[in-house]
């Protein structure tokens, strides 16, 4: 390992890709979670059916297979994605399906009396959802969203299988070039852990900020 700073540079380049994947994947997952979670609660059967089908399909099939579909099978249907796009798509759709159930559960846990206050104050369904239910439900979703984001971070390692140079991919490159297994894998172990720690802290901070002055939802 005479050139170890160069190898560390490789791994850090991979870390950037991992962070990118995590951020973009989480953003897509968040959008999908709210779309499908609210969809599950829709008045319209068709919307509920589509949301349920999405959730069950993406929870029920492996993220490996979903990624391979996004990258290797979609081109046969005329949709060619870059490895990064395929990675974000598979991760976002997969984790979004789990998030959707979190959104639904949190919304349903807000008491009936809040909806009744909305009716008594003549707020519309969407006004009630947007101003009364969602702000309270969001606080309940946060801890599980934090879990999901960490799951997504760790799942980004699968993109190395479609030759996207993320942190895990680069560690394997370093291992192949140096023959040293311990150092590259120990390095990414620590880096993954630090990234997960960042997510934990960020979510906890957000939770504390949102919980200020609140009762009934959860005392903090």
């Amino acid at each position: 390992m005479d050139n170890w700073s160069g190898y560390l540079g490789l791994i850090l380049q991979g870390a950037v890709v991992t962070v990118q994947l995590t951020l973009m994947g989480s953003a897509l997952a968040l959008v999908m979670a709210f779309l499908a979670g609210l969809g599950r609660l829709s008045r319209f059967f068709a919307v509920r059916a589509i949301a349920t089908a999405y959730i069950e399909f993406f929870r029920g099939t492996s993220i490996f297979v979903q990624l391979f579909w996004a990258y290797f099978v979609l081109p046969f249907m005329g949709i060619s994605l870059t490895p990064l796009q395929a990675g974000v798509l598979a991760l976002g759709l997969n984790v979004g399906a789990y998030g959707a159930e979190v959104v639904r559960g949190a919304i349903q846990s807000i008491g009936k009396e809040q909806y009744e206050a909305c009716v008594a104050l003549n707020l519309g369904r969407w006004q009630c959802m947007r101003h009364i239910i969602l702000p309270q439900a969001l606080l309940l979703m946060l801890p599980t969203f934090g879990n999901n984001a960490i799951e997504l971070l760790k799942a980004t390692a699968v993109v190395s299988l479609i030759s996207l140079a993320d942190m895990t991919f680069q560690a394997q490159v370093v291992r192949a070039q140096t023959g040293n297994t311990l150092i590259p894998f120990a390095t990414i172990l620590v880096l993954y852990f630090l990234m997960a720690l960042c997510i934990s802290w960020a979510v906890r901070g957000l939770e504390r900020r949102m919980a200020r002055g609140l009762d009934g939802v959860r005392a903090t």
Partner: peptide, 17 residues
């Protein structure tokens, strides 16, 4: 019709946030 009517509940039902 609801514009004509208001209600106060046993458990207040204030918005806690």
């Amino acid at each position: 019709m609801r514009q004509k009517i208001g209600m106060v509940f046993q458990l207040f039902n204030l918005f806690p946030h």
